[in-house]
Protein backbone atom coordinates (compact mmCIF):
# COMPACT_ATOMS: atom_id res chain seq x y z
CA UNK A 1 0.00 0.00 0.00
CA UNK A 2 2.80 2.37 0.93
CA UNK A 3 4.45 1.66 -2.38
CA UNK A 4 1.29 2.35 -4.30
CA UNK A 5 0.78 5.59 -2.42
CA UNK A 6 4.35 6.66 -3.04
CA UNK A 7 4.00 5.73 -6.67
CA UNK A 8 0.83 7.78 -7.15
CA UNK A 9 2.41 10.70 -5.31
CA UNK A 10 5.54 10.57 -7.43
CA UNK A 11 3.47 10.20 -10.58
CA UNK A 12 1.63 13.36 -9.68
CA UNK A 13 4.85 15.16 -8.77
CA UNK A 14 6.62 14.04 -11.89
CA UNK A 15 3.76 15.05 -14.11
CA UNK A 16 3.46 18.39 -12.37
CA UNK A 17 7.21 18.90 -12.34
CA UNK A 18 7.48 18.38 -16.03
CA UNK A 19 4.24 20.18 -16.67
CA UNK A 20 3.80 23.23 -18.79
CA UNK A 21 3.00 25.71 -16.07
CA UNK A 22 5.48 28.56 -16.25
CA UNK A 23 5.31 31.78 -14.31
CA UNK A 24 4.23 34.52 -16.68
CA UNK A 25 6.53 37.54 -16.58
CA UNK A 26 4.41 40.37 -15.10
CA UNK A 27 6.58 43.01 -16.79
CA UNK A 28 7.58 41.51 -20.12
CA UNK A 29 10.25 43.03 -22.32
CA UNK A 30 11.40 42.28 -25.85
CA UNK A 31 14.32 40.40 -24.30
CA UNK A 32 12.19 38.28 -21.96
CA UNK A 33 9.73 37.33 -24.72
CA UNK A 34 12.64 36.78 -27.10
CA UNK A 35 13.70 33.84 -24.92
CA UNK A 36 10.43 32.04 -25.68
CA UNK A 37 10.20 32.41 -29.44
CA UNK A 38 12.34 31.25 -32.32
CA UNK A 39 14.02 33.42 -34.91
CA UNK A 40 12.57 32.36 -38.26
CA UNK A 41 15.49 33.44 -40.44
CA UNK A 42 16.55 29.80 -40.77
CA UNK A 43 19.15 29.89 -38.01
CA UNK A 44 17.10 27.47 -35.85
CA UNK A 45 17.93 29.51 -32.76
CA UNK A 46 15.95 31.29 -30.05
CA UNK A 47 15.17 34.86 -31.18
CA UNK A 48 17.65 36.37 -28.70
CA UNK A 49 20.34 33.91 -29.78
CA UNK A 50 20.22 34.32 -33.57
CA UNK A 51 23.88 34.14 -34.64
CA UNK A 52 23.39 36.17 -37.81
CA UNK A 53 24.72 39.70 -37.88
CA UNK A 54 22.10 42.34 -38.64
CA UNK A 55 19.43 39.65 -39.09
CA UNK A 56 16.42 41.30 -40.76
CA UNK A 57 13.99 38.63 -39.54
CA UNK A 58 15.14 39.09 -35.97
CA UNK A 59 14.71 42.85 -36.31
CA UNK A 60 11.20 42.43 -37.75
CA UNK A 61 10.11 40.06 -35.00
CA UNK A 62 11.54 42.24 -32.27
CA UNK A 63 9.70 45.21 -33.74
CA UNK A 64 6.44 43.22 -33.69
CA UNK A 65 6.99 42.37 -30.03
CA UNK A 66 7.87 45.97 -29.16
CA UNK A 67 4.75 47.24 -30.92
CA UNK A 68 2.59 44.76 -29.00
CA UNK A 69 4.24 45.81 -25.72
CA UNK A 70 3.59 49.46 -26.54
CA UNK A 71 -0.06 48.55 -27.05
CA UNK A 72 -0.11 47.18 -23.51
CA UNK A 73 -0.39 43.50 -24.42
CA UNK A 74 0.81 40.95 -21.85
CA UNK A 75 3.10 37.97 -22.52
CA UNK A 76 0.44 35.35 -23.37
CA UNK A 77 -1.27 37.78 -25.73
CA UNK A 78 2.01 38.58 -27.47
CA UNK A 79 2.88 34.89 -27.85
CA UNK A 80 -0.60 34.32 -29.25
CA UNK A 81 -0.13 37.19 -31.67
CA UNK A 82 3.23 35.86 -32.86
CA UNK A 83 1.75 32.40 -33.20
CA UNK A 84 -1.05 33.73 -35.39
CA UNK A 85 1.35 35.82 -37.46
CA UNK A 86 4.15 33.31 -38.01
CA UNK A 87 2.57 29.94 -37.18
CA UNK A 88 2.91 27.80 -34.08
CA UNK A 89 6.52 26.93 -34.96
CA UNK A 90 7.53 30.40 -33.75
CA UNK A 91 6.97 29.28 -30.16
CA UNK A 92 10.15 27.81 -28.64
CA UNK A 93 8.10 25.19 -26.79
CA UNK A 94 4.97 23.36 -27.95
CA UNK A 95 1.64 24.87 -26.90
CA UNK A 96 -0.22 23.07 -24.14
CA UNK A 97 -3.24 22.15 -26.19
CA UNK A 98 -4.43 19.17 -28.17
CA UNK A 99 -1.86 16.68 -29.34
CA UNK A 100 1.01 18.96 -28.31
CA UNK A 101 0.09 18.36 -24.69
CA UNK A 102 1.66 14.92 -25.16
CA UNK A 103 5.05 16.60 -25.49
CA UNK A 104 4.71 17.87 -21.93
CA UNK A 105 3.02 14.92 -20.31
CA UNK A 106 5.06 12.00 -21.60
CA UNK A 107 8.44 12.83 -19.99
CA UNK A 108 6.79 13.06 -16.57
CA UNK A 109 4.79 9.94 -17.26
CA UNK A 110 7.93 8.15 -18.42
CA UNK A 111 9.71 9.16 -15.24
CA UNK A 112 6.82 7.94 -13.11
CA UNK A 113 6.38 4.69 -15.02
CA UNK A 114 10.11 4.07 -14.83
CA UNK A 115 9.95 4.52 -11.09
CA UNK A 116 7.00 2.17 -10.95
CA UNK A 117 8.99 -0.38 -12.91
CA UNK A 118 11.98 -0.05 -10.57
CA UNK A 119 9.70 -0.48 -7.55
CA UNK A 120 8.04 -3.55 -9.11
CA UNK A 121 11.45 -5.06 -9.95
CA UNK A 122 12.78 -4.42 -6.46
CA UNK A 123 9.69 -5.94 -4.84
CA UNK A 124 9.82 -8.93 -7.14
CA UNK A 125 13.48 -9.51 -6.40
CA UNK A 126 12.91 -9.27 -2.68
CA UNK A 127 9.84 -11.49 -2.95
CA UNK A 128 11.81 -14.08 -4.86
CA UNK A 129 14.45 -14.06 -2.18
CA UNK A 130 11.87 -14.76 0.49
CA UNK A 131 9.84 -17.27 -1.53
CA UNK A 132 11.82 -20.49 -0.83
CA UNK A 133 11.33 -19.93 2.90
CA UNK A 134 7.66 -20.73 2.59
CA UNK A 135 6.46 -24.17 1.54
CA UNK A 136 3.08 -22.73 0.59
CA UNK A 137 4.56 -20.41 -1.96
CA UNK A 138 7.02 -22.98 -3.31
CA UNK A 139 4.95 -25.72 -4.85
CA UNK A 140 8.05 -27.22 -6.48
CA UNK A 141 9.37 -28.29 -3.08
CA UNK A 142 8.01 -31.54 -1.72
CA UNK A 143 6.55 -30.72 1.75
CA UNK A 144 7.71 -34.10 3.08
CA UNK A 145 11.25 -33.47 1.90
CA UNK A 146 11.16 -29.98 3.38
CA UNK A 147 9.98 -31.37 6.73
CA UNK A 148 12.78 -33.97 6.63
CA UNK A 149 15.38 -31.29 5.92
CA UNK A 150 14.07 -29.12 8.73
CA UNK A 151 14.21 -32.10 11.09
CA UNK A 152 17.77 -32.83 9.98
CA UNK A 153 18.77 -29.21 10.64
CA UNK A 154 17.22 -29.30 14.08
CA UNK A 155 18.88 -32.54 15.08
CA UNK A 156 22.28 -31.56 13.68
CA UNK A 157 22.19 -28.22 15.47
CA UNK A 158 22.87 -26.25 12.29
CA UNK A 159 19.78 -24.17 12.90
CA UNK A 160 21.28 -22.91 16.17
CA UNK A 161 23.75 -20.78 14.30
CA UNK A 162 21.07 -18.29 13.48
Amino acid sequence: MRFRLAFVLLLALATLGAGPARAVDPRPTVESIGEHVMCLCGCVAILNHCPHLNCSMQAEMRATIQKALDEGKDEPAILQLLSQQYGVKVLAAPPTQGFNLAAWILPGLGLALGLGLVVVIVRRWRGLRQAPASAETSPDVDPKLLAAVEEEIKTSGLGMRE
Binding site: P20, I46, V88, A103
Partner: peptide, 12 residues
Protein backbone atom coordinates in the same frame (compact mmCIF):
# COMPACT_ATOMS: atom_id res chain seq x y z
CA UNK B 1 5.41 22.02 -37.47
CA UNK B 2 6.16 22.73 -33.82
CA UNK B 3 9.41 23.69 -32.18
CA UNK B 4 10.75 22.00 -29.10
CA UNK B 5 13.50 24.26 -27.86
CA UNK B 6 15.34 25.29 -24.74
CA UNK B 7 12.29 26.40 -22.68
CA UNK B 8 10.83 22.88 -22.98
CA UNK B 9 14.05 21.06 -22.13
CA UNK B 10 14.93 23.39 -19.27
CA UNK B 11 11.58 22.69 -17.70
CA UNK B 12 11.67 18.95 -18.24
Amino acid sequence: TVTVGAPFFNRV
